[in-house]
Design a binder for these strands. Structure first.
Lengths: 355, 355
DNA sequence: CTGAAAGCGCTTACAG
DNA sequence: CTGAAAGCGCTTACAG
């Protein structure tokens, strides 16, 4: 790999001192316009760019924002990792920096990785995601005065540092109101892992929106348990086997919603026609399944923008919730009052195949 | 952010010269064992780690491998970006480096971004993906002696540099043979964008495997066109409306396969029972739809491992194909000879909902 | 095996 | 507005 042009080479070629070249880059107002123009011409000719390491060494910065890749698992958070990473990378680039990826064990051992990164001055700041209850990273970083922003809450009263998160309760409530407006009166909720605050938050949205509409939101209509992103079919079965089963199922994530699809298929029922279904996250699958799954899209672009803003904010710790956007597809938008005419809808579907 | 411990501090505390500390890290064999032990103790006590920038400045390396995030679009390559990034990051970390993310326009302007990264010595090496026909990056990088490995071919005879890719033809052929073993005699192919070599490669796999089995692989059974990852329903309709329609559809990617699901649903036909369907990429959707979609899983871990190996290989340019793994699910594994007894299968399905 | 010194490529007071 | 100089924290010949 060829050695890159140095500032010294630019200064020699331009016939000015090295400080003048540096000023052309870092403090152009200090230069005579004529000089500035000349130096810039030479810089362009030579394709000169200051060496990141040398500049960083001097300015005590690395220009790198660390992001820990979450471990692989289906569902909730990672379904939009692509999108978040893209948005984060773009935003960080707008501030002239880059994103550095790393991995770390999720437990407390992971802090060793963070310590290493900081001891080496590899990163200037960190973006946290995959937060968990009692996440030790926030306090650990705050104690060391490391700039960081958390995408996700630690769900403890004393969370330190800036954070942004998605308002699960308001998102789910949107979905419930949408279903109510389509005539649904009995709406069930499918959720994973009873103990996680994320699920509790989303379940609360369902409960509150049901109360608001005067609907039953008792535990009868609440199916929770199993793995995090599988078993939606079991949960759906539990609710649909009730004497007066729900006519709509609100799931805490898309994977569970598609589990409900599976149960409906096994019973020859059609999502969106016989039973409405909604998900959460608007994962790629939601758009591509049949019928399309109504889901809640996290505003990752806005979140990423805000994360990067807060990264360089010295203000008092800020916490912000972003409301997800309801993306309506066929799994919920058949009018429920049409249910008695479901057969004609089916006939429609039968003839809709283009020849 | 607190200043990190420096080598000078370690040397003072240990009562040895700075070179000795450096040797303890970079050439431990040069030290008296006793001295080494002592220096290491002090290093541990102080949590000392060499500053990345200073070390990089001296050794002319950055310890960073650049990876350009592909722009967002559904399907083929990005469905497993998560997994690839995770695997790549882990592998790069095993060599003591990190992955730096960046974005660049896909056209020739994008080279400016690469030039900037190199002029600043921000990265030591690059991993390329989202290659396209006549991709200018490979030659551009080779001319500048930049170490790089391409995940994906440029499909030109003169491709320079190391590359790895997935063997689309062999993958699809696996799928076809699997369908043949389940009794299918008429197998159609759904592909996007007639002109892309990736599609041609996959279509070739279908054609060759059909010939091998003595099946019709004429253009009659080949449905190609439309957007890259939508319109699978149209393509499927084109084939299913033939006088003697195929009993199985092999799609060049999962999104098209799920488009076929959509058409089948509209005609009240069941994937895997009435018409077998297979996809490519084993995207998250494949596992979660009903019925599960048989698909071809790219061995991203092996690919990432090999990419990182080649990154530091001075050998003659290497090109390697990796065979994807057929992941069999219900969309194809119903025995086709059972087709006449489809009703009993359906009955089975009807009673399979757990109460 | 160890110590004193140069230098990687920058930025930034400092004196002119 | 410009020039000569120090120093960021390392690594690595070089002489002892």
């Amino acid at each position: 790999m060829a050695r890159a042009t140095t500032l010294a080479e630019v200064s020699a070629r331009a016939g000015v001192s090295r400080q003048t070249v540096s000023n052309a880059l870092n403090a152009p107002h200090k230069l005579h316009p004529e000089t500035l123009r000349h130096v810039r011409t030479v810089i362009d000719e030579l394709g000169y760019r200051p060496d990141t390491r040398a500049r960083g060494l001097r300015t005590r910065s690395s220009g790198l924002v660390g992001y820990c890749l979450p471990p692989h698992h289906l569902g909730s958070v990672n379904v939009f990792l692509d999108e978040f990473l893209r948005a984060l990378t773009s935003e960080v680039e707008r501030s002239g920096r880059h994103v550095l990826l790393f991995t770390a064990p999720p437990d407390d051992d992971g802090l060793g990785v963070y310590a290493d990164l900081l001891a080496r001055s590899t990163v200037d700041a960190l973006v946290l995601s995959e937060t968990r209850v009692g996440d030790p990273r926030h306090e650990w970083l705050a104690e060391r005065d490391v700039p960081f922003v958390s995408f996700g809450r630690t769900w403890t009263g004393s969370q330190v540092g800036h954070w942004v998160d998605v308002d699960g309760a308001r998102g789910i409530a949107q979905g419930v109101r949408h279903l109510v407006s389509h005539g649904h009166q009995r709406i069930g909720f499918l959720g994973p892992h009873e103990q996680t605050p994320v699920t509790e938050d989303r379940a609360r949205g369902w409960r509150e929106a049901c109360h608001e509409a005067g609907l039953d939101a008792s535990d009868r209509f609440l199916a929770i348990g199993g793995e995090n992103h599988v078993g939606g079919d079991h949960l759906a079965a539990k609710l649909l086997d009730l004497p007066h089963p729900p006519t709509a199922l609100v799931a805490a994530n898309d994977a569970l919603a598609l589990g409900a699809y599976k149960l409906l298929a096994a019973r020859d029922l059609r999502p969106g026609v016989d039973v409405a279904v909604t998900g959460f996250d608007d994962s790629p699958s939601a758009a591509v399944v049949t019928p399309g799954l109504t889901s809640l899209r996290q505003p990752v672009d806005h979140i990423a923008t805000r994360v990067v803003e807060l990264l360089s904010s010295d203000s008092e710790p800020v916490g912000e919730l972003f409301e997800p956007e309801l993306v309506i597809r066929s799994s919920s938008s058949q009018c429920h009052s049409d249910r008695t005419t479901a057969n004609s809808v089916t006939a429609d579907r039968r003839t809709s195949g283009r020849g």
